Simulated assay, not measured.
Amino acid sequence: MHDWSDENRRRILSHITSAMEKGYSKLLLEDHIVPDQNAGARETLLDMTVVVWCPGIERTRRQWTELLQSVGLVIRNFWLPEGHAKGVIEAELLDARGI
């Protein structure tokens, strides 16, 4: 997902969410998860590289949360091994109450 603009990410994710079923479906994304604060040199340089070569960015936890909420998903967990910039984001459809 990091190689795409926000507009294209939302379009891709909207197609996925339209095929999901509440209480049954889960979305698992493997991607870079940058710390909200004090990102290391590796994450920072990777983000700058993606910005230069692609229309995308590397996202922080907060940015992932905002993106997925904008298409009706809620993050249930970030699976990120200690010391790694790449992990798995587990998300489900929001219910009518926004939970």
Rank of each mutant, 00 (worst) to 15 (best):
M1G: 14
H2C: 09
W4S: 03
S5L: 07
S5Q: 10
E7N: 07
R10P: 05
R10S: 02
R10L: 08
R11F: 11
R11I: 11
I12T: 07
I12A: 10
I12Y: 01
I12M: 07
L13H: 05
H15S: 12
I16W: 05
I16N: 07
T17E: 08
S18A: 15
S18V: 04
A19M: 12
M20S: 04
E21N: 12
E21Q: 15
G23R: 08
G23C: 04
S25V: 07
L27P: 01
L28V: 15
L29H: 02
E30Q: 10
E30T: 12
D31R: 01
H32C: 14
H32D: 13
I33C: 06
D36T: 03
N38S: 15
A39M: 11
A39N: 03
A39Q: 12
G40K: 02
R42D: 12
T44P: 07
L46H: 15
D47I: 01
V51G: 09
V52K: 11
W53I: 11
W53G: 12
P55Q: 09
P55E: 09
P55T: 11
G56D: 07
I57K: 13
R59Y: 12
T60R: 04
R61V: 04
R62Q: 14
T65W: 02
E66I: 01
L67P: 02
Q69V: 06
G72K: 05
L73V: 05
V74E: 07
R76E: 12
R76P: 04
R76N: 13
N77D: 14
N77C: 09
F78N: 09
F78K: 05
F78A: 08
W79C: 09
P81I: 04
P81R: 03
P81F: 05
E82S: 09
A85I: 10
K86M: 14
K86H: 10
G87C: 00
V88T: 13
V88F: 14
V88I: 12
I89N: 05
A91G: 02
A91E: 00
E92H: 05
L93C: 07
L93W: 02
L94G: 07
D95H: 01
